[in-house]
């Protein structure tokens, strides 16, 4: 289990990470979201001991992480890179050996991993001869092949097509089932929603959201309504408690001030009997993200 306590890092006058707390259990996937510059990479870099925090501590299974052998951590940096002129096999083998595997072990399991991620390339090919997508897969394999207990993936989905993103999700789920603690950052709330057991959002170095996806969504109340009824946009906008109405084709998307307003809308919409759609839900993660980003400091 990874536990971050009161983690703070500043560069000169700029506080990049400000008193951050969170926990990632073994067998749990945590999504870390936030805009560029919110402090995600700095947080990762402190966990990896590239940077020393000004304050706070990082614990792994109750022990301070600093000074421990970091071989159990698998890390995929945001910007990818491999040795262009090295054979795939040698490359993965080198990284894996640095994480405690032997060359023999790597050679035994490597074909299996190539199959799992459907890498289009041979073990003896050189990296520069591979397509970008395949290079990304190779790098992922290098980060995961040694079955790390803690996995840190910085924007793992960026640049992957839906098929490859699916393969990546499968890979992450597999390691989760083995009991790895996994943190990943992403801009795509779809991935975050699908994968995360738990998510943390940073804004200007501070944690502004922390919980499971449904907890976070529910905490905002069911303030969204999708409606197909005889009511016009004007009628809806005139109703008290309706903040915004957006018309898509025949469907209206309403943003409410409070969940209770929904009952009033339902009554109005069904006054003349049958309607085809009335759906009330909490805001999507995407909307919450935008909401949080837009919030001004109190």
């Amino acid at each position: 289990m990874l536990k971050i306590e009161n983690l703070t890092k500043s560069f000169g006058n700029m506080t990049a990470v400000d008193a951050v707390n969170f926990e990632v259990q073994s067998g749990e996937i945590m999504g870390l979201i936030g805009q560029n510059g919110a402090g995600k990479t700095t947080t990762f870099r402190m966990i990896l001991d590239f940077l020393t925090p000004n304050q706070g501590q990082i614990f792994w299974n109750g022990q301070p992480l600093k000074g421990q052998d970091m071989s159990f951590i698998g890390y995929l940096p945001e910007e990818r890179g491999l040795y262009p002129k090295m054979r795939l096999q040698d490359q993965i083998s080198y990284f894996a050996q640095l994480h405690g595997m032997t060359k023999k072990e790597v050679n035994e399991v490597l074909p299996e991993w190539f199959e799992r991620f459907e890498v289009k390339g041979k073990l003896r090919d050189k990296v520069k001869d591979l397509s970008k997508g395949n290079q990304q897969k190779v790098q992922l394999i290098a980060a995961l092949i040694f079955h790390p207990k803690l996995i840190i993936l910085d924007e793992p989905f960026s640049g992957l097509d839906p098929v490859n993103a699916g393969l990546l999700e499968d890979g992450i789920q597999m390691l989760k089932a083995e009991g790895s603690a996994i943190i990943f950052s992403s801009h795509d709330m779809g991935n975050v929603q699908a994968l995360s057991d738990h998510l943390v959002m940073l804004r200007q170095g501070k944690v502004v959201l922390d919980g499971t996806v449904s907890q976070i969504r529910d905490s905002y109340g069911k303030t969204k309504i999708f409606l197909q009824s005889p009511l016009t946009k004007e009628e809806l906008e005139a109703t008290e408690g309706v903040l915004k109405v957006v018309e898509h084709d025949h469907q209206m998307e309403l943003t409410l001030a409070a969940e209770e307003v929904g009952q009033e809308i339902f009554k109005m919409a069904t006054a003349n009997g049958y309607i085809t759609e009335f759906r009330q839900e909490p805001p999507t993660l995407d909307e919450i993200f935008r909401l949080k980003v837009g919030e001004v400091d109190a």
């Binding site: 990896l48 001991d49 590239f50 970091m70 071989s71 951590i73 890390y75 995929l76 940096p77 910007e79 990818r80 890179g81 491999l82 040795y83 262009p84 990284f95 640095l98 994480h99 790098q139 290098a142 980060a143 840190i152």
Partner: peptide, 17 residues
Amino acid sequence: ATEKGTRIMEILLSAVS
């Protein structure tokens, strides 16, 4: 420079000081 430019450096750093 190649390791740093290709960001391999960060992967190495995560395993070796």
